[in-house]
Write a protein that binds this DNA or RNA. Structure first.
Length: 356
DNA sequence: CATACGTGGCT
DNA sequence: TAGCCAAGTAT
């Protein structure tokens, strides 16, 4: 490769033409050139799922969502609980709540078609600067600059920027904007992200095979692996709680729908105590012969570790819970539970079988 | 600008 | 193992 002073979008696009990763929502570069445009609904859905989430984790969810709800109008007409259940396990559940709000807004305010307009996209629930730019570029080929974690890392290395994130964000955004081409904006956006995901990786980047190795300042100075700098994170405290798993004589399980805000908002879960650093006060959802499991459920969230004591009970058909409702076995899918609640269920299963 | 908000995989 | 990391958004 010829030595260059500044990186060129054309070099990256040439690499992308040969190395684009295959993903169910992606139109490969050859097809894109031939005139096949991506479905904005699928672009939007994939981008929301990909927020802070790996391609490997998203793929199965994307396939299930698009099989069940092929278009934005189908999703807009779905029951809230069905969408939350289908999202269970993917995390950041505000995304699912905003996904539904967004689908309904697209139907109600945009005639069921995603607007090909960056500012209009930005006004929709769950669509921020990154996602608005990604949909603009990938779905509509508008020359918007996409700035995600990959782009930040690639720009920090290309220009050997040592300012720690998030303070470096404006500088990195400006660097990314300066490189964005007018043509093939969608392919270019996906190319930078593929580069970050496969070559310009957080640890041990593969600089030797990078299409931008020649103009990369960090590679020249040997600082690539330590960029981007980040401000240190705070330690996670430990919170304690109690979860209550009640099984009725017909096998129905006592579950409740959590409020539509905050942690696990809108998701199905076991009734329980508050989660706090202090030992929790008991909060059984009904009076029964509760039995503590020998093992607690452990789970780590973004900002704290959780240790849940699990209490189980078998109750009669006359049981009248103060919270939640009994869900018959036919209506209960463990996969509808967020992971922490599924851990509680998995710990309880054996004991419930013995008791029942 | 800082914080809340999940999860699974990798080192 | 404990920590870091992933195609961020809302407040």
């Amino acid at each position: 490769m010829r030595e260059t002073e500044t990186p060129r979008a054309a070099d990256l696009l040439e690499w992308y033409d040969r190395n684009a990763r295959i993903m169910p929502w992606r139109v490969p570069p050859a097809a894109r050139r031939a005139g096949t445009a991506p479905d904005p609904y699928r672009v939007w859905l994939s981008e929301v799922m990909l927020q802070q989430t790996t391609v490997a984790a998203v793929t199965a969810y994307f396939n299930r969502f698009t099989a069940r709800w092929p278009g934005v109008a189908d999703l807009a007409a779905a029951e809230d609980g069905d969408v939350m259940g289908e999202w269970a396990g993917l995390g950041y559940y505000a995304r699912a709540r905003n996904l539904l709000k967004c689908a309904r807004a697209v139907v109600a305010e945009h005639g069921g078609t995603f607007p090909a307009d960056h500012d209009a996209l930005l006004k929709l629930p769950g669509i921020g600067p990154y996602t608005a730019a990604a949909i603009s570029a990938i779905a509509f080929d508008l020359p918007r600059t996409v700035v995600d974690g990959n782009v930040e890392r690639v720009m920090a290395r290309l220009h050997d920027i040592h300012t720690p994130l998030p303070a470096a964000k404006p500088e990195l955004t400006a660097a990314a904007a300066a490189l964005t081409p007018e043509r093939r904006a969608g392919d270019y956006a996906q190319a930078v992200m593929d580069l970050g995901a496969t070559i310009c990786t957080p640890r041990t980047p593969a600089c030797g095979i990078c299409p931008w190795r020649a103009p990369c300042a960090a590679r020249a100075r040997g600082t690539a692996a330590e960029l981007p700098k980040k401000t240190p994170k705070k330690a996670k405290p430990i919170r304690l709680g109690i979860a209550y798993v009640a099984q009725r004589a017909d096998g129905a399980l006592l579950l409740e729908r959590r409020e539509d805000r905050g942690l696990l908002g809108g998701m199905l879960g076991w009734p329980g105590s508050e989660w706090a650093e202090e030992a929790p006060a008991p909060a059984p959802p009904l009076d029964a012969d509760w039995q503590a499991l020998p093992e607690e459920a452990r789970h780590t969230f973004t900002h704290f570790h959780l240790r849940l004591m699990v209490q189980v009970a078998q109750v009669g058909m006359e049981a009248a819970p103060r919270r939640g409702a009994f869900l018959p076995p036919a209506d209960f899918r463990p996969s509808d539970l967020p992971t922490v609640m599924r851990k509680v269920y998995d710990l309880s299963r054996g004991v419930l079988r013995e008791m029942g």
